[in-house]
């Protein structure tokens, strides 16, 4: 290979990842030219990580809700053990959710802009090892196209909230949220309503609000979309929906200012 990268900041031997063109935090972004031999090599040796994750809607992978519920209960237990107060537990769950949220915006936006017709382009199809160079170059092509045709960024509060209430909710929980309401009292306040939250459905209500995990997801998405805000969860039991939760989104004042400039 032509460019051998000298790695100044770490003593760890750059083992098997040295061929990767992916981001490596010890080196920083690496430049690769399209069609450079290293690129085709990387895409053939690592067919899945960078490409397939974009088109997972085609294969729709699932695990059992039970497996998730056990992982989630252990996540809550860990947060409990590490915390001294209820608000600290909620803060930790929020932080875990935030970690997910910041990863979802661009991915879901990309996926939702791929029209059903072009999905065939992206189908991992024979995603097994045998992807030849030609077809992976073809994939790269259609990938670039997909990015070019991507839905434009949501710039208004209502649009981005509809994205969360619709696209994000469907992705996470398999159905859209139950309602999206604007507060009548405060300009910057919106409410996303979930009548039967999936992740906490096995948890009998306590003074700890485990749905703060989902608050973190929402806040992570909104933050990465440049809508700084604060999200909290509140139980509002009703006759038919005794686990109903309202997620209250409060945007920072600058979001309102920006919105006013655009109108």
């Amino acid at each position: 290979m032509s460019q051998k990268i000298i790695n100044p900041s770490t003593s760890v031997a750059p083992a098997k990842h040295s061929d990767s063109t992916g981001y490596d935090y010890t080196i920083g972004p690496q430049q690769t030219l399209p069609n450079a031999p290293s690129l085709s090599k990387a895409t053939t040796s690592l067919p899945s990580v960078y490409n397939e994750s974009l088109h997972a809607s085609a294969r729709n992978p699932q695990v059992s809700l039970a497996a998730y519920a056990f992982l989630f209960q252990e996540l809550v237990t860990q947060a409990r053990n590490a915390s001294k107060s209820v608000s600290e537990i909620e803060l930790r769950l929020h932080r875990n959710g935030y970690h997910l949220g910041i990863r979802l915006l661009e991915l879901l936006n990309f996926r939702s802009s791929v029209s059903p017709g072009s999905k065939n382009f992206f189908k991992p199809g024979n995603s097994s090892q045998g992807v030849n160079v030609a077809s992976s170059a073809f994939q790269e092509d259609s990938l670039a196209q997909g990015i070019a045709n991507m839905k434009r960024r949501d710039l208004r509060m209502v649009e981005i909230l509809q994205f969360i209430h619709g696209t994000v909710w469907s992705y996470l929980f398999g159905r859209v949220g139950d309602d999206l309401v604007k507060s009548s009292e405060r300009e910057n306040e919106f409410m996303i309503i979930d009548n039967s939250p999936l992740l906490t459905r096995f948890i009998s209500s306590t003074n700890v609000q485990c749905d703060f995990f989902v608050c973190g997801i929402i806040e992570g998405i909104l933050d990465s979309a440049s809508f700084p805000c604060n999200v909290t969860a509140h139980s509002v039991p009703e006759q038919n929906f005794d686990q109903k939760v309202v997620f209250v989104v409060r945007f920072e004042p600058q979001v309102l200012e920006r919105e006013a400039l655009r109108s």
Binding site: T77, R80, F202
Partner: peptide, 19 residues
């Protein structure tokens, strides 16, 4: 479902789960 998947239940202890 409602006992084992509840993080606030301690194994082997009396079950107090509303659900």
């Amino acid at each position: 479902d409602y006992v084992m998947k509840n993080p606030f239940y301690e194994p082997e202890m009396p079950i107090r789960c509303e659900l």
